[in-house]
């Protein structure tokens, strides 16, 4: 756009015009996009500091920061099963989420395709899904413990069951939204079921699927903290519980930030992947 403008106009004038406009957009970017989030975070810290000022047990931002620096100076120490660095705890939680989420994708996405493609299956599964989906993920923990007789698989099971619904539902919705025009093309070209899936359904459904995947990873990360509090072992959720028992409130606040930041990073990562896959 600007290129063509520069070509058409005489050289002297547009140069200043172009550069001042560039400056304006830069300023706009700074004031419109960079400043507000920084201001928001700053406000959060100020409110936190004010509350901490009047509450004895709650540590303020500075005290927490000092503690965090100390904590992250050695995140990967290992003093036996019940005393590992915070890095190990984060990794353990990520591993559980990865496993539970991966299983959920492996089962949820194909199931979503089948439900979306065959109306009979859709009607068959509709009542089951509506019945089970609203159940709090933690309600599944005892079942997991009962079946697997171990805490770790039970936690993974809880992640699985909470992450599977968004993937099933979003994939199925995507498949059912495939325009009739595309299906008519498939019929006229007499495409095989395999070609229909790979050349028409999959590319069309991909954005829907990625929405499901993003929602799922969000839910999974949300649930893992609670699940680990109950199951124990190594993990960020259990770490929070442990620090609560030690009455180390700085660490609890740090844990809240860790959970938030890791969740944000997961979301960002998947958004990036989703962008790559969109055909627009």
């Amino acid at each position: 756009m600007t290129n063509t403008v520069n070509k058409i106009m005489p050289t002297a004038k547009p140069f200043t015009l172009g550069s001042s406009r560039r400056l304006n957009t830069q300023a706009y970017r700074f004031f419109g996009w960079v400043l507000p989030p920084i201001f928001g975070l700053f406000l959060l810290v100020v409110i936190w500091a004010l509350i901490a000022e009047h509450t004895q047990e709650l540590p303020g931002p500075i005290k927490t920061w000092v503690s965090a620096v100390e904590l992250f100076s050695d995140p990967f120490y290992d003093h036996g099963i019940n005393d590992k660095g915070v890095g190990w705890n984060i990794l353990a939680s990520l591993e559980r989420v990865g496993l539970g989420f991966g299983l959920a994708a492996l089962i949820g996405i194909p199931l979503g395709f089948i439900i979306g493609r065959f109306e009979f299956v859709a009607r068959m599964t509709a009542p089951v899904i509506s019945l089970l989906r609203p159940v709090s993920p933690l309600a599944w923990l005892p079942i997991g413990l009962l079946v697997f007789k171990a805490a770790n698989p039970a936690a993974i099971w809880v992640i699985f069951i909470s992450a599977v619904w968004p993937m099933i539902i979003n994939t199925a919705v995507g498949v059912s939204k495939v325009p009739q025009d595309y299906m008519n093309v498939a019929k006229v070209l007499n495409l095989s079921e395999w070609k229909i899936v790979t050349k028409i359904l999959f590319p069309f459904v991909l954005p829907y699927m990625m929405t499901g995947v993003r929602l799922s990873i969000g839910v999974a990360w949300l649930v893992i903290v609670a699940a680990e509090m109950l199951t124990g072992g190594v993990g960020i959720g259990f770490w929070v519980w442990d620090e609560w028992n030690n009455l180390n409130v700085e660490h609890i606040i740090i844990a809240i930030f860790i959970v938030g930041i890791v969740g944000l990073l997961l979301e960002l990562m998947l958004t990036q992947i989703a962008k790559r896959f969109s055909y627009e």
Partner: peptide
């Protein structure tokens, strides 16, 4: 068939 709205697959 040549469809009214071309019906090409956009991807």
């Amino acid at each position: 068939v040549v469809f009214q709205n071309h019906s090409l697959l956009p991807w």
